[in-house]
Amino acid sequence: MATRSSLATGIGRVLIAVYGILALAATGRSVVQIIEKFSFAPFAYTVSAIAAVVYIVAMIALIVPGRSWYRVACVTIVFEMTGVLVIGTLSLFDRQLFPDDTIWSYYGMGYAFAPLVLPIAGLWWLRKHHRTASAEPVAASTTAPVGE
């Protein structure tokens, strides 16, 4: 059986908590935006919904032990970092594309730049625990003892 992920210990717990908070914030924001005024800024509100999904998946991937979930966490957090940088830059230069803010607008300025700092911290944490995650067994051994 897979052992408890070392990603969910120490600072990893703080990362998981922050991902959970941002997941709730982005989900709430995107649901309200999409229901109430989607036609005003469809691209921006779609980005908010994508960010919500990214935060949820990243949080789950940091909680669940195993190599596969470690890889999911890596891919998700790299996607998140790319999104923050691309959307942050676009929001600076194209107000028509972003008539309303997303969680990643202006590199997360509306959220005290947590969306910019979080993927950096997440990638650092994943890198720090790369060997531990790679060494975890994928599944429980199902072989019977010799002689049976």
Rank of each mutant, 00 (worst) to 15 (best):
M1D: 06
M1T: 04
T3M: 05
T3N: 05
R4F: 13
S6I: 14
S6E: 13
T9N: 01
G12D: 03
I16F: 08
I16S: 00
I16Q: 04
T27G: 10
T27N: 02
G28Y: 11
V32K: 04
E36I: 06
P42N: 05
T46Q: 01
V47E: 06
A49I: 04
A49M: 09
I50G: 01
A52E: 07
A52G: 15
V53Y: 07
V53P: 08
V57Q: 02
A58W: 08
I60Y: 13
I60L: 15
A61C: 11
A61K: 12
A61E: 11
I63S: 05
R71M: 14
R71S: 13
A73S: 11
A73R: 04
V78L: 15
V78F: 15
V78Y: 14
M81F: 15
L85N: 10
L90E: 13
L90C: 04
S91R: 09
F93G: 12
R95S: 14
Q96D: 10
F98L: 14
D100H: 14
I103R: 03
S105Q: 09
Y106W: 13
Y107D: 07
M109N: 11
M109F: 12
A112Q: 11
A112F: 14
A114C: 12
V117F: 12
R127Y: 15
R127S: 14
K128Q: 15
H130G: 04
R131L: 11
A133V: 03
A144F: 06
V146R: 02
